[in-house]
Every structure is written in C-alpha cells, then in structure tokens.
Nucleic acid binder design. Structure first.
Lengths: 139, 139
DNA sequence: ATGGATGCAAAGACTTTGCAGGTCG
DNA sequence: CGACCTGCAAAGTCTTTGCATCCAT
C-alpha cells in the first residue's frame, strides 16, 4: 500500500473526506522523490488551488504523515514521513535528506535534559553537509 | 565589556561604521533578557527604521554575534550568542532558551555522519520541553 | 440535503530593496 | 569629501482567510 492509499485511508478514518484535489496532492507528494517545497507541489499541481495545497500539507503534517525539515537558511522542506521519530542528514549539495535513528544519541539528549532539570517533550537534530554522491562533484 | 561595546568594536575592526542606529540596536539586543523576535526589537526601537533593524540583525548573525533559533512552529527567535558551538533547550512554557554544549553528543553526531559516508559541515540540536520554573506552573 | 472542501482573490505577516539624503571617518 | 549608512515606502515572499460554490457522504 502506497502513501496515497495509506494517507487517504487514514484521513477517512478520522472523518476527513476523500476528495479529488486531496488525492491529487497525496499522489504528488508520493511522486516527489526528494524533499519538496510548497512551491514545488504547487507547480506540479496546476489544477489544484494554492489554498488547498497549503491546507492539505498542514493537515498531513499535523497527522505526522509529512515531516517538516528546516534548512539552515530558514526555508522549509517537506518530506514523506516514515512515521517514527528520526533525525536528518541534509545534503548541502543536492538538498536530499537521509533519515536515521540513533538511540544512543537520543539517550544523550535525554540526559542533557535531566541535567538541566528540564522536562523533555521533543527534540530535533539536523546534520548538514555533503552526501556521498555530492562530495566528489564539488557540488 | 558588555555586548554593545564588544560588538561595536568587532564591527569597526572589520570595517563597518559605528553609527547611532547601529549602537541603539546593539543596546536593545543586550537589554533583551530573553530571546526576541525581530518584531520585539522593532517595537523597542521606534526611532530606528525597520530596514536598519533587519540589516543589523542580519549582519550580527553573519558575524556569529547573534544566534538564530527556530521554534517548532516555524517562527524564529534571536539571542545573543555566547559565541561557540552549542545547542538549545527551548522551554515551551516561557519561551526561554538555555544553551549547552555536549562533546559526547557531538561525537555521536559525527559518528552518524561517518556511518552514512557524509561529510559533516554543521549540525543543529534543539530540545523542546518545560524548564524548571515552568514545570510546576502548568504553563 | 448538508456540512465539509474547494478555488479564487484579497488580505496578512514578514522581510528585502530602491533611492534620495545624511553621516562617519 | 566620498563611501557607507539610514529611513521611508514600495515591492517581494510566503501563507492564511473570506466567501460563494461544489461535492462526498
């Protein structure tokens, strides 16, 4: 079951309607191989209104079906979420992300919170650099 | 030596001019006890033009005198930078940040990069939760 | 049928830019 | 004095909202 069907089913379960524009957005997101900007989506969906694209992205993000990745310059990309908690390696060359999980890293973070008498409710870790493909190409 | 003098000296050294509006922005930043938004600064500096405030913030950020912290909702705060590399504990209650450094955490991050054949050039870690003051107040 | 969803365009929030005039060094 | 800086307002971005219409259930 692809993302489109899965997300669609999930939406219906919660009481949202399955509409043509909504499914079009889901398909476009699934088709996007790399992280995308809202602008990318808008461009690939000329027949869907801006508002609908924004509203759908917001919805999916709230449902954790889409993850939002802040870049260093302050811009934001979205990417299909694999679901669980994870972190990102963001390539400055090609802009792609790789997700990874690291329990030890998370444990260390938890410990820092404890050390500061801080109730940890969430955290974000982003690594920036060059991926294997881009490192050689001077990208 | 306070931030204002330090930053001012630093600016002059690099060839920027010490002007009244610039110093006013520096003073306002130093006076801000907590992280601030650009809007906060603008409000506290009614006699300095918007453009100048934005331009000065940008300048200070580029010089690493100011650090930019992305909140979960996508908004951005600034805070006087203590200089070196560090991470943040961001309180969802009062909005204040605490900076911390953790070599072990950084090492773990470096290792993840290595494991993914990724040239690490930078990273960001943000912890979200409740600080000690806010945890009891249901804030 | 009926309330949620859509699309358009307008309004908003936030930031940058062009330019005439002022100021630091 | 000359280059840099400032302030204003206008122009950009990017995102949200109001509202009449449409459509899934």
């Amino acid at each position: 079951m692809g993302f489109t069907e899965l997300a669609n089913a999930r939406l219906e379960t919660i009481g949202f309607r399955s509409t043509a524009p909504r499914r079009a957005v889901l398909r476009a997101i699934e088709a996007a191989g790399a992280p995308f900007t809202v602008e990318d989506l808008l461009a690939s969906l000329p027949d869907v209104g801006r508002a609908t694209v924004f509203r759908t992205i917001k919805l999916l993000h709230e449902l954790d079906l889409l993850c939002r990745v802040p870049l260093e310059d302050g811009s934001v990309r979205y990417q299909l979420s694999e679901g669980g908690h994870h972190h990102h390696l963001v390539c400055r060359g090609c802009g792609r992300f790789t997700e990874f999980t690291d329990l030890e890293l998370d444990a260390r973070i938890q410990e820092q919170a404890r050390a500061h008498d801080f109730i940890l409710e969430g955290h974000a870790v982003e690594l920036y650099g060059l991926c294997r493909e881009c490192r050689g190409q001077g990208a």
